[in-house]
Design a protein around this nucleic acid. Structure first.
Length: 807
DNA sequence: TGCGGATAACTG
DNA sequence: AGTTATCCGCAG
């Protein structure tokens, strides 16, 4: 009875999106487990690819000859059965490849790296041999790839069967090691060495008695140096004399700037009655193992984080683990350190700032059970925690929880899946819940918990809305109203700080010719290029195309070419002119691109090294600076003009969030919002701090227009290098949909996408709105299959369930 | 995805 | 004929 393994191979195509059957060679039979990575031969020739074992069977439902697994890549499974099931569900619900889902759950380091080596198998004349191999018996094909002449030569030799290409799947996962020392002699032998020492050899004497204290152990050399108060040189001598041996010790890379002392952890803070109620409700669910979803709606500053921490503590006390998700943008050192100070070294943090190695090590700490609390952004929802007691998803309305390339998953839905699997409660926290979540809470699908009061008893800061229309008429094109300038100046006098936010949503600087109106566009995509002053180039945000700033109009050669739009740089310049005394820190993608800059700028601001923090959306969340008493929003309404049904919601959220940055401590805060749309309900409701009124108003509009949460939506996209082909494919799909969907389902399109051309491809899309359509999922899967046929050659079809945008 | 086999196109 | 470019189908 030969065991057969089902393997999902690393070839992300529709064709190969299924397990393949492989023979398990006898020597591997004992160690091979489901969830391990393997190297398998795949395709013609000797190509090897990486794959995941997803199951075992006794019979293959395949008539052809089976090939054996070439090698096992892991000692332990890298996906447990929970995550394996989850990956399958994810592939199904997001219309993605199974293999892509498996990889998104794992750190990058576990991706395979296939190397191709060329080996000589027959006589080759000396000259060519030396040219290609440089004296070695094999060479890495990747190193030759840049030289077409050599590749040609090789192919010729291969045809003549003089060389062979050897495929090897190698692992890029490397644990970091440091030097450790281990005594080679036993206690008595060391004692003998010690007595025969020269009386002046104090250092060696100390080394020997230290070694006696660690017989049978391995200690990191750095630790040993500290403990024994010795220098590296002494250890080298010890090694030479045969007293000790240097060995590599595996360590976890340490991504934390701050060390943590597990013996002096912070105690929980006292709770107010509201918090108490919330914690009790969740604790009850943890104890009862209910996979209940809670919607925790708490105003900014109401102490949500403390609630999270205490529910995590509850889970840990019961021997369980906890998962806490926050948007990348608010994954600041402030919040991370707070969690670490409470729970110490059992906290693992996963965020985009980690290097591949650091990420891999944090993942291993979780996988091994060393880390029991995980804090991280979207992809941390796949953290390999066992026995989860509670899952928290903070700022649940944030759009960054939805991944916008394949697999297009929403962390909230994955969190729900895991909550069900582990019988653990899920807390969705927000000051401004998404309409979807709030509507579910109304229907009782989620249990609504509220924190209506701020912990410091401070009222929410008064918000003043400044109508910019008369301002512009009076003062010309300035980014600052008289009112805002006055208030900024007042903070300068009082040595208080201000935060200024420039809403960059729907907004960029572009070049336009004032004579002919020509706008500089990307040659590959259908959008205008954005001006970047730091690199002095025009860049395309979609494909990365870059070109120098033109001096004359490429169309009419006029010199009257200038850029439009306000960027943070331009605002900073204006601010310098208007308030020369103000010290300004600018935070945007350009100033925070380098690792650690985000943290550094915030630290500077926290240490009062600047009066004004000027930034984009990234400063709206999670910051807590007690000396900030003024928050200004320069342009509240730029997002409102977008063709996006969530535009009002995003604007309301943003204004509510940023308002919460003012007056966090005992000083009264103030918020000034500049807008050209002072009458818009999103702005008026934010001004009144009235979520409920906004919710009712927005729900009414969504109801009328047939948008979520009244309808579920799916977006289908088809692209092709030729516009007509993309349109033709979409029309054909459209016909199928019309013929098969439920009558109550609404189909919008096909239409060219707002950005019709990207990366040299034309895009068409269809949006499906439905309330209940049981066949929709199968139909979409079927359509995906059919687009593999040759009349759809070169057409790429992708499906986005519950899209964030319809644009 | 990436390879080999088939086929078409090219070369002297 | 022999070599090179291009397209297509397929993988256990």
């Amino acid at each position: 009875m030969a065991e057969l393994a089902q393997v999902v191979v690393d070839v992300p195509t529709m064709q190969t999106n299924q397990p393949y059957t492989y023979l398990v060679p006898a020597p591997l039979e004992k160690q091979l487990q489901v969830g391990m990575r393997v190297a398998v031969p795949f395709g013609n020739g000797h190509r090897q690819v990486q794959g995941f074992v997803v199951g075992f069977s006794e019979h293959a439902n395949y008539d052809g000859e089976l090939k054996p697994i070439a090698a096992v890549m892991d000692l332990q499974p890298v996906v447990n059965t929970e995550l394996l099931d989850l990956s399958k569900w994810l592939a199904d619900t997001t219309y993605s490849f199974w293999i892509s889902c498996l990889y998104t759950m794992l750190p990058n380091m576990l991706k395979s790296k296939t190397q191709r080596f060329v080996q000589v198998v027959d006589e080759v004349d000396e000259q060519t041999y030396f040219d290609l191999f440089g004296g070695k018996d094999e060479c890495d094909l990747a190193e030759l790839q840049g030289d077409p002449a050599k590749v040609k030569q090789l192919l010729k030799l291969q045809r003549a069967k003089k060389v062979e290409i050897d495929y090897r799947v190698t692992d890029r996962a490397h644990a970091k090691t440091v030097t450790g020392i281990t005594p080679l002699l036993n206690f008595e032998q060391l004692e003998d060495a010690r007595t025969s020492l020269h009386p002046n050899a104090h250092a060696q004497n100390r080394l020997l008695s230290y070694l006696q204290s660690i017989v049978g152990q391995t200690v990191k050399q750095t630790t040993a140096e500290q403990q024994a108060q010795l220098r590296a040189a002494t250890f080298n001598q010890g090694a030479k004399k045969g007293w000790l041996k240097k060995v590599p010790v595996e360590v976890y890379r340490n991504p934390y700037a701050q060390p943590i002392d597990d013996d002096h952890l912070e105690q929980p803070l006292p709770l107010n009655p509201d918090q108490e109620r919330v914690v009790q409700a969740v604790d009850q669910a943890i104890d009862g193992q209910w996979s209940q979803t809670f919607l925790l709606q708490g105003v900014t500053g109401s102490g949500k984080t403390e609630v999270y921490l205490q529910t995590i503590a509850r889970a840990l006390d019961k021997g369980q683990t906890a998962l806490m998700l926050v948007p990348e943008i608010s994954l600041t050192p402030q919040i991370v350190n707070r969690v670490r100070r409470r729970f110490g070294s059992q906290v693992a943090v996963l965020h985009s700032g980690l290097s591949n190695g650091e990420r891999y090590d944090e993942w291993r700490r979780i996988n091994s059970g060393d880390a029991r609390v995980v804090v991280g952004a979207r992809s941390a929802v796949f953290a390999p925690l066992d026995n989860i007691g509670v899952i928290i998803l903070d700022e649940e309305h944030e759009t960054s929880y939805k991944q916008d390339d394949m697999p297009r998953y929403h962390a909230r839905e994955v969190a729900k899946w895991r909550s069900r699997f582990h019988h653990a409660p899920l807390i969705l926290g927000s000051a401004t819940p998404s309409l979807e979540s709030r509507a579910r809470a109304l229907k009782g699908v989620y249990q609504l918990l509220r924190l209506p009061h701020r912990v410091n008893q401070q009222p929410l800061p008064p918000i003043e809305v400044v109508d910019m229309r008369p301002e512009v008429q009076r003062r010309g094109e300035s980014n600052f109203s008289t009112k805002l300038l006055e208030e900024l100046d007042r903070r300068l006098q009082r040595h208080e700080q201000s935060i200024l936010m420039l809403n960059r949503r729907g907004f960029s600087s572009f070049m336009m010719c004032r004579d002919c109106g020509e706008v500089l566009k990307c040659p590959n995509c259908d959008i205008s290029l954005t001006l970047h002053l730091d690199t002095r180039t025009m860049k395309c945000h979609y494909c990365g195309h870059e070109e120098p700033i033109p001096q004359v109009c490429p169309n009419c050669h006029s010199r009257h070419i200038r850029y439009y739009g306000t960027g943070t740089e331009k605002v900073e310049q204006e601010l310098h002119q208007l308030l020369p005394a103000a010290r300004i820190i600018r935070m945007d993608v350009d100033t925070t691109r380098r690792k650690g800059m985000h943290e550094k700028l915030l630290r500077q601001f926290g240490h009062q090294q600047a009066d004004i923090l000027l930034g984009t959306q990234m400063i709206a969340k999670g910051l807590d600076f007690p000396n900030v008493t003024l928050v200004g929003v320069l342009n509240a309404d730029t997002g409102l003009g977008l063709p996006d049904f969530r535009a009002s919601e995003h604007t309301f959220d943003l204004l509510s969030q940023v308002s919460g940055r003012a007056g966090r401590a005992n000083k009264q805060g103030q918020v000034i919002i500049q807008t050209f749309n002072p009458g818009h309900y999103a702005i008026k409701d934010a001004q009144a701090h009235d979520y409920e009124r906004f919710f009712r108003h927005e729900m009414e509009l969504r109801h009328q227009a047939g948008y979520p949460p009244y309808y579920y939506t799916v977006r289908l996209m088809a692209s092709h290098p030729e516009e007509a082909q993309a349109a033709r494919a979409m029309t054909s799909i459209h016909q199928q949909l019309v013929a098969n969907l439920a009558p109550s389902t609404i189909i919008l399109g096909p239409t060219p996408r707002a950005i019709a051309r990207m990366k040299r491809r034309y895009y068409y899309q269809i949006v499906i709105k439905y309330k209940y359509d049981p066949h929709l999922h199968d139909l979409l899967q079927q359509i995906l299959q059919e687009t593999q046929r040759k009349e759809f050659k070169d057409v790429q079809v992708s499906i986005d369930p519950d899209p964030q945008y319809f644009m």
